[in-house]
Design a protein around this nucleic acid. Structure first.
Lengths: 125, 125, 125, 125
DNA sequence: GTGGTCTAGACCACA
DNA sequence: GTGGTCTAGACCACA
């Protein structure tokens, strides 16, 4: 099996990789992605695991199936992926950040201060 | 070798575990932690890796060596660890959060809004 | 195996049954539904098939999982189910009806006429 | 027995198949269809079931018996079948559609709107 | 060839 | 006990 982390389901990591491939331009709207069996063999993973991954992306409207032909990247795949990232950021990343701030006793102002500091550092670079 | 992730150096993961053990009360100020060789054999890693890990914790003032006797948890280990977490949060987590906001086009106000929202949700629970 | 039709996936039929049970009041908001294994044995079906069915209902917000405890009917399960039926009616049933009308050469007016006729027959009953 | 659904009488399903065979051109006006016994053996069903099916089609004027020779497709079989479909559509499909609309609270106008929408989508394809 | 479904059976984390 | 993931392997419809 090729390089999957232990702390996250393989089918989720596979979906992430497909998304990365789309964001990077490797797969473009309308492109066919590898067939379930091809990818399963290539990654040394069971075909059912690939199916689970493709079903997830299908539900998110990032890829779509054409019966008997394979899976294809949708026209608005990129918008869908960015939307998804935004949602995850707001609903998962931010709450976790706030939780850590609470635990470490970091006041709310620090957030805005650090943010401005960070923006300033960007400009000077 | 026992369950280490691939995406992070083992000596860093070992240090994290020791810190977790201290935060959770498993190791208390003044306690002796396992010897380099013991831990190396137990975890199935090279002794040098354990040394590297202990040196890191020593530099951070979380453990200290007593010649010929082993490594011991310092009196202010917990404070040091929390300090360390705070630093990491401010210098690693926050910049990453700001970077993602930039990429996703999320405005600064969202941060304060969401923070207040999160605090409110805490109170109602 | 107990009485499943051949022309529709078992996991879809199982999901339909759960929904029927909710609409009929057999399962009420907050109720626990049978565990994956219980239902699998009871219906003579593989546990994975039950999982697939429960995952579908979960995604639709009709049931929700509580780690290590089982699946429970959500508070707004009924609204979700009715919404779902409405969508399916508009996007699947109606197009099929229009397609048949086209094939059989039935004019659009027939639709409104028959509809009024049907409403009248309701009143007299 | 060969592939019959559980939720509909076999003789009705057999009649449907004969009709499909006529609509598709497999059986043409004047053609002889399989004898009762042939079909019974071939499909692994009781001869009485086949008889019931042929009687139904006879009553509908889709096939006709010639004493001692078997059953033959009538000249106007296709027209009869389409008539039959039309009747079923008006008397079974439509009332069911109206019933669902009532249950789901979908107003009558939606019907005409969706119909026009559907026609438009046909033209663009 | 393609995806879709299903079975049998395993191991994991969580409670 | 509970759900969640994964494997190995089968059979189906569609193209």
């Amino acid at each position: 099996m090729t390089d999957f982390r232990q702390d996250k389901a393989i089918y989720l990591q596979m979906a992430d990789r497909i998304c990365d491939g789309i964001l990077s331009g490797e797969y473009r709207p309308g492109d066919r992605i590898p067939s379930v069996r091809e990818l399963a063999v290539f990654l040394g993973v069971n075909a059912n695991t690939v199916v689970k991954s493709y079903e997830l992306l299908s539900r998110q409207g990032i890829i779509q199936t054409r019966r008997g032909m394979g899976y294809y990247v949708t026209e608005d795949a990129m918008a869908k992926i960015l939307d998804d990232h935004r949602t995850r950021f707001l609903e998962e990343t931010l709450p976790e950040v706030f939780r850590q701030m609470q635990l470490l006793g970091i006041p709310a102002e620090t957030l805005t201060e650090k943010r401005e500091e960070w923006l300033r550092s960007l400009r000077t670079d």
